[in-house]
Design a binder for these strands. Sequence first.
DNA 1: TTCTCATGGGAGAGCGCTTTCCGGCTGTGC
DNA 2: GCACAGCCGGAAAGCGCTCTCCCATGAGAA
Lengths: 352, 352
Amino acid sequence: MTTTGGRVPVGERLPTLEDVARIAGVSRATASRVINGIRNVDPQLHELVWEAVGRTGYVPNRLARSLVTRRTGTIALVVSDSESHDDDPFMGRFFADPYFGRVVGGLMSVLRAAGIQLALQIVGTEEQRTRLVGDLRHGQADGVIVLSLPGHDPLPRMLTDAGVPAVMIGRPADPVPINYVDLANDTGAGLAADHLVARGCRLVGMIAGPADVPASSDRIAGFRRSMARHGHAWVPQSSGNFTQESGETAMRALLADHPEVDGVFVANDLMALGALAALRDARREVPGDVAVVGFDDSSAATAAEPALTTVRHPLEDMAAEAARLLMTRIDDPGMRVSSVIYEPSLVLRRSA
Amino acid sequence: MTTTGGRVPVGERLPTLEDVARIAGVSRATASRVINGIRNVDPQLHELVWEAVGRTGYVPNRLARSLVTRRTGTIALVVSDSESHDDDPFMGRFFADPYFGRVVGGLMSVLRAAGIQLALQIVGTEEQRTRLVGDLRHGQADGVIVLSLPGHDPLPRMLTDAGVPAVMIGRPADPVPINYVDLANDTGAGLAADHLVARGCRLVGMIAGPADVPASSDRIAGFRRSMARHGHAWVPQSSGNFTQESGETAMRALLADHPEVDGVFVANDLMALGALAALRDARREVPGDVAVVGFDDSSAATAAEPALTTVRHPLEDMAAEAARLLMTRIDDPGMRVSSVIYEPSLVLRRSA
DNA sequence: TTCTCATGGGAGAGCGCTTTCCGGCTGTGC
DNA sequence: GCACAGCCGGAAAGCGCTCTCCCATGAGAA
């Protein structure tokens, strides 16, 4: 078996800048200048260097370069999971949820074009968090996108204290001077309330998410506020954990306690799917007997039968914006803390 | 504002091994040995070093370490996208698909415990591929997990030629001596055929995926073979691209051409969701008029109404296995090429 | 002609770490 | 009492790259 072209045989030492320089008959410094397009270099040497690069199949060693430039071309996506343990199935659920995929897709749409790679990090324990922040300060990654998760996570604060460029998707639970991109969750929930009331619903219930997730509590507050404004001071509520099954259970509970509900706002589409199943079991027509409004406009909304009327959450756009914000922050360390809030809209389908 | 505890102020130079050594009153070499737990070091010095580490808040610089050890503690997840362009929406679809999330979840379940991070890479152009392989040879990552995508991708071959530890999830389209983990897709499709026939279906159709994806073509072949064995030499077929809408379109086409179908095998759950919608539109009862079997047992299967009878694809387990295989390969470069094939099973729900 | 100044290239000092090599010390067996 | 292992710690050589100095050269000004 022969080796084709200029390909370097396996196991052989890889060509270094030194080799390129030697072959081109210039110094390492000049070779480096040519390859990085820095300063004017004599066109003739320029050519010689590129020729040597071609002949050797030279590829710069990113690690070595990063060590001196303090730039890695990597952004970390950190999922901070302060509550669950390593063997908790929570993470499995998390990745399977459309949320994760949509975020990654949005981030990559921007990062890919910029030639930046995304490094996925999950931190659970205090030690892992400290470690992560340490690595980041060393420039393991140029910046961080933090995904908001349940609980009062110390990570955002640690990151800002350490001066690591960071952007959160979803606001932090505690007030921390960190950049973030979020949705006006309260307004979105308000839209759902308006719609259900306008439809003529008399008793509207709510299936909420975990109270310690900011996105969730904002939806709860926004919904209640809007309902109150419409004269519904009291809203029966049941809670789930954003999964389909929990939505089904919550709907059953709601139905048991308040058989007369004729409208329900579910804090995310996945739970709405479960709610739909529970309503089917209870022989309630949707939207005839009970109108259902979801939240997120994820793929689950169109998968549902009937298709879900839901609040649109432009997660891909938000993630893309977060990536852009982070890149700006990385290039300009002096940038002042800023946040971008997206406005939700109601997507009308058949369920309400 | 004061700085708490041993925390190092922002902007200050980070403590290096040199600093730790100086404070502990030992040489850099000894400090390194203590921190990495290499060789026996006098217990007293040992303690001195750790104390210095605590006082300075020292965290080893991973980059510098990797440069010399040639180990990064990173595994790359590469999505090779040889056909689409940068602005193609294909990638958005890809990340939103449960497939991606399930794979990441499975990988992380293993990698997280091993303290390895996952770096996401998307390569589209030839240049990006060359670049990627170059970076990998330099040890940018210790190994690669490759996701199989449409088309005859040159990447697997490039990787093996370069001697980069790699494991594919899903077999390569062309025969390449690369490690992979796959599902016996043909057997799975056969299970679906057996079930539909056993149910008494007279005319069974099929909604296939793209023909150039190995997983898809294996399902097609397996289904046809099994149907033939049951005496159904001919199977009407319509194709989609694994999305819900394409499934709906394909089902409509199938119904138009063969109104008498009373059973259909759909090559993945997402398309099955679409097929269900088309059947509903056409006023066919499922499973009464038409029985439907999906593939994957993804979250879409339970979201469907009626819930889908489907072929279980243990993607999380497979991804976890791929991660383990890769780690083994990394530690033992001499390991011979091996592949693991998972056996599918049929999950009975209501649609068939 | 001489001095100034701009320009391009080379030498070499690091970036922060691991690891080999070697010297000095202690303990054992004869 | 001596030779020989066996250990342990330090000095220093890198890993592959960038980038600051500094020098040489040549053009333009006085």
